[in-house]
Design a protein around this nucleic acid. Sequence first.
DNA 1: CGCATTTGACCTGCGC
DNA 2: GCGCAGGTCAAATGCG
Length: 302
Amino acid sequence: MNSSSWVDSLDLNASARSLRLETPKETNGSNLVVFGRKLSVKEETGALVEELNRVHEENAKLTQMLTAMCESYTALQSQLRDLMNKTNIEKELSPTRKRKSESGNNDRNSESSSTDEESIRKPREEIIKAKISRAYVRTDASDASLVVKDGYQWRKYGQKVTRDNPSPRAYFKCSFAPSCPVKKKVQRSVDDQCVVVATYEGEHNHLPPSQMEATSGSSRLSSVPAGPAAPVKSSGPTITLNLTKSKSGDVEARNQSKPKMDSPEIKQYLVEHMASSLTKDPNFTAALAAAISGRMFSAKSN
DNA sequence: CGCATTTGACCTGCGC
DNA sequence: GCGCAGGTCAAATGCG
């Protein structure tokens, strides 16, 4: 199961709710015209409140489902990681094409200290490099800055024009924690200049700054540390593909089709998606407005 | 003045 | 060995 399918299922639930909430919306107008019928208005208000409570319960259930799903996905991911580490070790033990340069050094055993260091360092590098994910962010094509707001702080350390793509590729390092090994490459897509492709290498060894603020008691809903002129770019959805290298094509295919559900980006996207599907639903907003106004009127009449 | 960004130079791996 | 391309470094520059 991929995220889009269960996000869609959330959408379906939202639409199901909206179907049930159609009646209040239709009677909303009559509330204003036949305002004297207090009894029916109160009945409707009660029904709406009931409906709201039901929606809240449903929301809580969905949140529970989401949490359970995230947990099971995390468990699966750690299993996959263990498997991949095993296959990496096996690859290291067996002679491969990558070993060509090192095998060329075999006749120079006098440099054993340096080659030993390399052989120790290389698997570590490969493990770091194995944790590669890719994010596609839709931005304004006229926006020349290759900045992808993902909740982390990045320091640009280089830019290069590559052969396969006329638009420059920018290189970033995570600057929030000095010891964080994560790097990011950002380049516009060749096919669609509106789409920016961000490739992440490695894993953060710290919480995202936004989450750190949240845990430290900040009441802000979403805080991106890039300054006031840098809200979360929600001009389009960010799709994150975990491109973690894998020997098995089957596992790889499944893994690629499965975005990082436990990543803060996805979680934020889900929250935004759920919030927007609710707020964009005219039936829901109308019902909500009717319920609130109903309560206000009933409070006034008391 | 300090920090982030820019940009040319340099390093490294790979193919021929 | 040489050239190419991608990646990184570090001095220069800009900005708040």
